[in-house]
Each structure stands twice: as structure tokens, then as C-alpha cells.
Write a protein that binds this DNA or RNA. Sequence first.
DNA 1: TGTTAGCACTCTATTTTGTCGAGTGCTAAC
DNA 2: GTTAGCACTCGACAAAATAGAGTGCTAACA
Lengths: 344, 344
Amino acid sequence: MELDARKLGILKAIIDEYIMSASPVGSRAISKHEEFNLSSATIRNEMADLEELGYLEQPHTSAGRVPSDKAYRLYVDRMMQRAALSDDEIKLIRAHMSAKLDEVESVMKQTAQALSAVTNYTAMVMPPMLAANRLRHIQLVPLREGRALVVIVTTTGFARDAIIRVPEEVRSGELERISRILTERFYDCRMDHIGDMIAKEMSGELYERRAFLCSVMEAVERKMEPDSPNVQLSGTNNMLHYPEYSDVNKAKTFLAAVEGRNMLYDMLKRASKLEFSITIGNENEDEMFKDCSIVTATYQVGEEPLGSFGIIGPTRMNYGKVISVLEYMRRSLSEVLSADQDED
Amino acid sequence: MELDARKLGILKAIIDEYIMSASPVGSRAISKHEEFNLSSATIRNEMADLEELGYLEQPHTSAGRVPSDKAYRLYVDRMMQRAALSDDEIKLIRAHMSAKLDEVESVMKQTAQALSAVTNYTAMVMPPMLAANRLRHIQLVPLREGRALVVIVTTTGFARDAIIRVPEEVRSGELERISRILTERFYDCRMDHIGDMIAKEMSGELYERRAFLCSVMEAVERKMEPDSPNVQLSGTNNMLHYPEYSDVNKAKTFLAAVEGRNMLYDMLKRASKLEFSITIGNENEDEMFKDCSIVTATYQVGEEPLGSFGIIGPTRMNYGKVISVLEYMRRSLSEVLSADQDED
DNA sequence: TGTTAGCACTCTATTTTGTCGAGTGCTAAC
DNA sequence: GTTAGCACTCGACAAAATAGAGTGCTAACA
């Protein structure tokens, strides 16, 4: 027995129906589709076949059929049609993306909010990994009590800061000098190479300050990698709208899994190697997300991918729409970031 | 009829019991308390009195009694005893507060997490309002295409940055000069006065750049006030553990109210005028929080209060413990911030 | 006068039972 | 290969039955 065109059509109809209704699809419902013009009995036979092939599942005898993960996979690979975004949806996204976006942080937040508002699923956005960015400026600002603030700015306009200790023998005025020298020497260097370079080049006029410089550089490197708490989440509650989570305990489990952010961060990081990625139900390594599908995309400035973002929803997800939204957002986000996030 | 010592004692016992169990308290349960040594019938009479006085409510005949908001108010004002923190709890807080806290953002996040982990309620933390801080350093960093990054550092070690437009006639080198002049002139000025001062003093060597300076100052001012999306939330899901929210719809309403953050921000801002504040049930202006109690505290560096943080939970909240935790946290947070957030 | 035992009553939560309907698989006929 | 027909299964829902917690009131007691 194989998957002929008719079976495929019926399967698609079932999936579309199930995505809409969330309740098992019976043979009668499908037999009403005019394009097939088949009786419910015939559909039943086909459904039995599809079940045997592993594309459908039955919660219990005398319930309708529910698509399996395998079916969704087939669906996204071969059957799904993209849903063009409506004007309203585009407006909604624009509205989010045009508000005072003068800081990376708020760009990430707004992106997450736009995504969750348009899709009604949970959105996650990973802040940019700056490893491939280039240094523009480094500034050491003296604070009281042997502390200083290191501020790093990349050519793409991202700023990071960290507080470090300053040994007593380094005078306040010297920090300005060191800032100048470091900026000059490492101007336009890739952020992730600076550590190595300083190790090799530790000589010349700054030789006697090398211990201090190490701690500066260590702070710089630490700040380049985003970490899990910085993943922006939005619309976690959206999940509560879906009947899949009408049970408080399921909802709790999901929210707990998501709140940690560690898993999400790992997933996003892994996904940042591909332009798009879709993992469905059991394809997710994580036990907690076996009932979910996760769709991600990467954003970039210029060539280099900076990070990724995505959507988590029930496997019964509106894949067509989600993908369209992510595609749109991917462009939109890359543009906003390229424009140096200045919009007011 | 008035509230004598015995009535007070019984009321306290009922509240304590109800905080534990979340289900209406019957006369028998209280009559078992040895310290009263009264029969359930007597307790019943007293309970009827307490109900008449407005301290107790009855969900329906033949259910036990439930404390009213008025009762909780009395409880926190006159009857409650603080719960000392256990060693484990202190350890838990310490663990959160000692991890790489080299950025204000992460201090806020860790604080929120510690609070929600220890109390099992929802925690919110407002980032510092820098209005009363003093300027330490201001740096304009040129980026490409007529943009620059303004970085501001306060004497207390907080940094903020914003991207601004730079008019063509302002050369890259001049930004360095302007940075120096601004830093010199406004060194140690209160952040919220800088706007006014520049308006008055706009003369001398920077006269011909005044339009540009205005936009710099506007960016500075904008960054001083935290805004609602910056309120850190943690443990929103904790609420789902409580029977009050076993109904998904209630949970949804709560989570939606909280996700917006606007209300929380307003509340925290208002609360930042008092060291501590407790609002119970109906005392909350907001309709959404009529079933909740909100306890907040402020934190500071030196004299000036910088912001506030707090806990949201059901009115049936363990007030004694929450207040102890907030008190501990208030000290702890102020210390961490005073120490310039450097801990590794 | 305050306290208490006793009792009838109320109301909810839970369990049990019955009914309805959607959906199935199978068979036989077209 | 398709379809009508039919017996069967199972969950959802409603109605009825039961149990139990708690009350208010009354009358008696110290």
C-alpha cells in the first residue's frame, strides 16, 4: 500500500481541519468536501489505510482521527501552502517595529511581542551574538573605589558594558590613555579574536599593565556571548488559549519548561546555523516539548548571522502562517538592525 | 459588640489556618486549638460575631468562614508575626545574588528570581530611576552613516546608551571634543537637572552645536527613566500552584494583567515613595488585582531611593514571610548595588 | 451570663447511573 | 472500487443518589 494522490489529499484535508478545530476529525466531515466527492465509508477505508501507514492516530475507537507527527512532517515538507500576511497583520508588525527602537534590548522585546501578537503562539528571540562583529570603540570610565566601567561599542552599533576592578596602581588618568590605545590597536578587529590578539601582542607600552588588561579583555569576551536569561519571551500565556492546555497541569509544565529559558537558548543557538528550521513534536529532543512544534529563523546584519528567533506552539500549529510571519520578520529585523536601530 | 482579645485570637487562628489550607475554616478546626480550650459551639458564636463585624465571610451556609480583606488588613497591622528566614532560604537568595552581577539588568533579573523562588509568588523588580544620580562620564562614539552612540555613566556605576543622529557638519573628531566638554561641565550634576542646565547654559564654545546638543540631551533624559517593559518579572507561573487559580480562565486573566507590566510599573513607581507598602485585595485600585495582595519595598544606594520591587500573590498570602524576605532583599540589593555590582 | 451538647437543616462535592450521539468496522450489494 | 446499512464502542453530559462538613438554634448547665 502506498501514499497515492487521493490519500495525500485526504490527509491534507484532515490536517487542515484538525489545525482549525483541535478535535479528532471524522470521516463524515471529510466526505463533505466536494473536491473528493466520496462517501464517508470510502473515506473511512482511506483513513484506516492512513492509520496503518502511521499518518493518523485514533484517541480511542469511535473517535475521529488525529494527525501524527509524521503527518505534520509530510505536511510541512510537501503539502503546506504559505499564508500571505493580511494588511492588518503587517500593520501590527510595523506598529511594533517602529516604536522607539534605540536599543538592541528593546528591538528584541518588540520583535518578540510582534511575533506572539501576530501568531498567537509563544515567541522567543535571542539577542545578537557579537562574536563576528568588529570593535569600534572601547572606553574605560573610572568609578569610585577601584572600579571602572568598560564600555564596548561595535561597528554595527551594539554597546555592552561591564564593571571591573582596577588595581590601585592604575591611576584614573591612565584609564583614558589605555582606552585610546586599545581602541586604536583593536579598531575593526573581530570581537572574538580580541582575546587571542591581546595575549600575543601583550608587549610595548602597556606591558606593565598586562594583568589589568587581561581582566578588561575577559570582561569584553564575557559580554559578547548572549546568555540564556537574555532570551526574550513573549506570549507564553497565549498557549493557555488552546484546548491542548486547558488542563492547568499541562499549562504549568509548559510554562515551567519555557521560563527556564535554558532549553530555548540552546535550541535557538543550535538553530542559528540554519536560515529556517522546523522541529515537530517528537523531533524535539527535549521531553517537555514533545507536544510542541518549534519554528525558528535567523537574522543578520550584512552577511553574518547574528542570532535567531522563533515560535513555539502546539504541533497542531498553523505552519503556513507561522512560516510567512517568520520570513517577513527575518527581513524586517535585519533591516531594523542594519539601520542602526534609529527610528524616532 | 467589640473586638476583644479572644475574638482577636480566634480571628488570627482562622487567618493562619486559611493561609495554610486555602479552604474555608470551620468551627471544629479552631476548637481543636488547645490554647482556646473552647467547644466548637462557642467558636461558632464568636465566628458569627466576627462575621457581623465584617472580618469573616461565608461562601455559603454550611461552609466554614473565610477572612475578609478587612481581616487581612488587621492581621498585617496588628497580629502578624514576621517569619525568620531559614538557612536554606538565605542560601537560596545568596546563590542568586552572587552570580556574575556585573550589569544592572542582571541584578534586577536575579533579584526577581530570588524573590519568586523563595516566596513562591510572583516577583517584580523595577530598575533604578537614575534621576537623582550624578553624571560621571558621557561619551559620544561615532558609528557609520551619521549615527553615534551616546554612552552615559553615573557615579553609582550605571551605564545607559542610546543611538542618535549626527548632523553632517559635526565631524567625527569633534564628537570626542564634545564628549570631553560635556563630561567636564556636567560632572557630578544630578541627571534630571542636566536638561535644564544645558538649556540655560547653551553658550560659549558649543554655541553653534546647540541643535545637536539638544538631541544628545534628549536621549540622555529619555534613558534616565526606566519604562514599563523594563520591569523584571519572575515566577508568574507560581500562581498556577494555588487553588485560587486552578481555573484556567482565572489564571489567564491574571497572567494577562501581569504581562502588560504597565500596571505593575505604575504601582512600583507609586510605591517607591515608601520604604514598604502592602495593599490587600480591594485596596488595589486595579480591578484585575482585587483578589491579590501586593507587597513592595524600595532599594537605594546611599540616601536616595532608586526604585522598588515586590511580590504579588493571592490575598491569602503568607505576609509574615513575604515581609521578612523583602526586608532581607532590600538590604541585600542595596548592598550589591553599592558595591558597584562587582562580585566575581 | 457565658458555655456547651444536641439536633435538624443546608449546601457542596462526589459518585453512580442512564442517555445521547458521533464515529467506527464490517458486510453485502452495486 | 465504491457505497449503504447496521451493530457496536466509547466518551460527554445530565440527572439522581449519597456522604459529609458545617451551620444556627435551643435548651441545659455552671
